[in-house]
Amino acid sequence: MYVVIFVWGCGSNQSSVDALLKKPLDSLSIQQISNEIRKNPYNGELFMRRSELYYNNQLIDSAINDAIIATRLDSLKPEHFIKLSEMYLSKGNSEEAKNTLEKCNRINPDNDEVLVKIATIYFYVKDYKKTNENLDLAAGVNPHNAEMFFIRGMLHREKKENKAAILNFQKATENNPEYFEAFMMLGLINAELKDSIAIQYYNAAININAKDIQPYYNLAMFYQENNNVQKALAEYQFIIKNIDKSYIHAFFNQGYINMVYLDEFEKAISYFDSTLALKADYVEAVYNKGYCYEQLKNKAKAIEFYEQAKTIVPNFQLAIDGLNRLDKKK
């Protein structure tokens, strides 16, 4: 009697899948993943991987189709539903995004991450009652969910309840010390309140992501708006030298500071020239050059730039007012 032993190839297939899934997404091609899918047509992770690659290549509809397949093959993986909902949102389809997450919640109840995502969509469509309901459900599952506190903070900010907003953003950072957006919101609200603790929050955001230009710019604006112009100028210079040498707002604002705060009109003109080299139709920069020349008693140049501002924006009131001022000085 002979014993026949069948050897199946699924082990090698699985090892091939595992190897592919471990590779960085940007090292893969759509063709590579498609070849693997043909050999493993019921593997949801492969479909989600290809979906992400489609998405990164701006093939949104193909990405959504693959993500839908992934949610059907792996319906117990909330992360697939979350990614699919984000793809719908990128197309502006908040209804499908919400439906996707609510379907996930029916299949995988009591997932705090899904509940917070549902709350987030309701927040952006301004259904604040549903936002609160889903945040409360999420808090019941996981009272330490940082994103739950962040969305609650955004809800209070929308209602102009700054104290409650600050409290929730602080709780978000306590539960996730790397929560960049929460530190940024804390900086923004405190800057609006003219509280210097905003500096601390913006610096915390910089420590989390030193390559993001926004906290540097917000910090410079805080200094500028609170008459600490030398620190503002230093921040703008830092941005240009270390973050983005073509950051137009850093050039424009240095011109503005020299024009408004320091009466350094010639220096201001040079910064507005740098601004216009980056964007020739920046009408405020053109007007400001005219204003600087007016202060320098160069009437012809002032008229030239006021007129130029009007060619960019015909009804630009500041330029019209400038021309009227000069006309009265005849």
Rank of each mutant, 00 (worst) to 15 (best):
I5M: 14
D273G: 04
L318C: 08
A182I: 15
A97I: 09
K301L: 04
Q308R: 02
V17N: 09
M184A: 14
A220H: 04
K160E: 12
D26V: 01
L115A: 09
I240N: 10
G9W: 11
K211D: 10
E181F: 14
P24F: 02
T131N: 03
F252Y: 15
N56S: 10
V17E: 02
L101I: 07
Y55H: 07
S85V: 01
A138N: 09
R49N: 08
L53F: 14
E102F: 01
E158V: 09
I60G: 00
A191L: 05
N227F: 04
K279R: 09
K171Y: 15
E181Y: 15
Q224T: 03
A164N: 04
V17D: 06
F252N: 09
V313P: 00
M1N: 08
M87D: 03
I166C: 04
N65Y: 00
D195Q: 04
E235K: 12
N168H: 11
Q200T: 15
N105T: 07
K39Q: 10
D61Q: 05
E36H: 06
G255H: 06
L20P: 01
L155S: 14
D18T: 10
Y236C: 08
S270I: 05
A139Y: 03
F272A: 10
E294Y: 09
L53T: 11
L53Y: 12
K297W: 08
N227M: 05
A232V: 04
L59S: 08
G290T: 00
Y256E: 04
S51A: 03
S51T: 00
V286A: 02
C292K: 04
E79L: 11
I60A: 00
D327Q: 12
Y2A: 13
L135F: 14
K83A: 02
Q295C: 09
A97Q: 11
R50K: 10
V286L: 08
R49E: 03
T120C: 08
F81L: 12
K126F: 07
L89W: 01
A250F: 02
K231R: 15
D66Q: 00
N228E: 12
V125N: 02
L296S: 13
S62I: 01
V114N: 13
L278M: 14
K299D: 11
D61P: 00
P177S: 13
Y256H: 15
V116M: 11
D110C: 07
K163Q: 10
L323G: 07
S15Y: 13
K130F: 04
G187C: 01
Q214C: 03
N108F: 09
V116E: 09
P78C: 05
D26P: 06
M154V: 10
N43T: 03
A204G: 06
K310R: 13
L84N: 06
A277S: 14
I121V: 07
I33M: 08
A302W: 08
L219I: 02
Y261P: 02
A285N: 14
L76K: 15
E294L: 05
L84R: 01
S34M: 03
P215A: 14
Y271A: 02
K194A: 11
I30C: 05
F222Y: 15
E174G: 05
S274Q: 08
F272M: 06
F251Y: 10
A285H: 07
L137M: 02
S12G: 11
S94R: 00
K130I: 02
V4H: 13
Q230W: 01
P41R: 13
A268V: 14
